[in-house]
Design a protein around this nucleic acid. Structure first.
Lengths: 195, 195
DNA sequence: AAATTTGCCTAACGAATGTTCGTATGTTAA
DNA sequence: TTAACATACGAACATTCGTTAGGCAAATTT
């Protein structure tokens, strides 16, 4: 019992879609079962609990993000390249796992302890990875002297917001989005001017 | 019946705090009543429904933001000053109504029709106000040629994210936050360099 | 002093929630 | 052929949910 990789993946995918559309609390096990054409009780042949669906999604996504940022910071690049690569990776992970990404960003608050604290740890670790990049840029004298924590959070928020408007059939590819966002993060709105 | 401005304000404030801490769905009328030292049924002497608490908060905040952006766009400033003022106003509204602001940003999805659609309209109107500022800058040849919608969303996301980490007793005043954020939006991370 | 309103109460409602239990069916392995 | 297992089922559970009905005492108004 409690095995079944294939059916479980289906359940997970459907739960991610519904959690994204309606939120975790507003999605009932009956909703999930209904979308799969099965009875609510049958779900429990595959999963332990409703929160299991949430935590699996949150931690799977966290792992993807952490792997990506470590890769960026391990390979030597200058800070500008690091930003470019980190944003590209982040956008790629978001856009190729849209449902799960939204759950990761929005619904993690509904995790109960100890998952809740564990998740925040991973999240902070990722944030630290971004901060490290900003730090590199400052110490290389390539970036302005900014509050590193502040900058990291601002970068993350603008990248994460993508999931609110990105549509796979829209007129911007993930690659284009990443490029535009990188440019914004690096140079802002203002036109270069000779002072 | 259903009057009582003072007690109603208390109920509203408590509901905003709880909606912020636990989310709309996870907050029960019993939670709200309990925090006020009263019985759940007594709430209904003051309010019509649970959703009333949510919609009142969402629309009150929307009005504040819309008033602020209209003010900025009415008064003539150059684009850079407009950005500065819009960000300052936005940060001010957020930080002086933290609980309500978080509800406004996070929980509006739980509005039901027709409030839901009505809210989105107001939200788009505000977004358009920001877009207008970007447009001004571009046509004045002060801002880079960027996708206006994209830029507006990116600005809004970074400003809104403040509520996730701002603490009234922290080491940054709202004014400082607004200044730092404005600088980031205008010039980005990269140090000015003579090419 | 009488009448009305306000604010809150107790009690209860029907509906929806996550989950468990015992069971039945088909599939795979010994 | 039999044993084990995977997958699903119907029924039911204890709770919790938002909300309503009706009443009672204090405050306010007439």
């Amino acid at each position: 019992m409690l095995t079944g990789t294939q059916r479980k993946e289906e359940i997970l995918a459907v739960s991610q879609r519904l959690f994204r559309e309606q939120g975790y609390d507003s999605t009932s096990m009956r909703d999930i079962a209904g979308a799969l054409g099965m009875e609510p009780a049958s779900l429990y042949s595959h999963i332990k609990s409703k929160e299991d669906l949430l935590s699996q999604t949150c931690f799977d996504m966290a792992e993807k993000f952490l792997l990506a940022i470590d890769e960026v910071n391990d390979i030597y690049f200058d800070a500008e390249q690091k930003v470019k690569m980190a944003v590209a990776n982040h956008v790629d992970i978001l856009t190729s796992n849209l449902d799960a990404a939204v759950v990761f960003i929005r619904e993690w608050r509904h995790l109960s302890e100890p998952s809740f604290s564990e998740f925040i740890k991973l999240r902070n670790k990722y944030e630290e990875g971004i901060r490290e990049i900003v730090e590199t840029g400052i110490s290389e004298n390539k970036f302005n002297e900014v509050d590193k924590k502040f900058a990291a959070l601002t970068i993350l928020s603008s990248v994460n917001w993508i999931v609110e408007w990105y549509r796979p059939d829209g007129d911007k590819t993930p690659k284009e989005i990443a490029e535009e966002l990188t440019r914004f993060i690096l140079t802002g709105l203002k036109k270069d001017s000779i002072l």
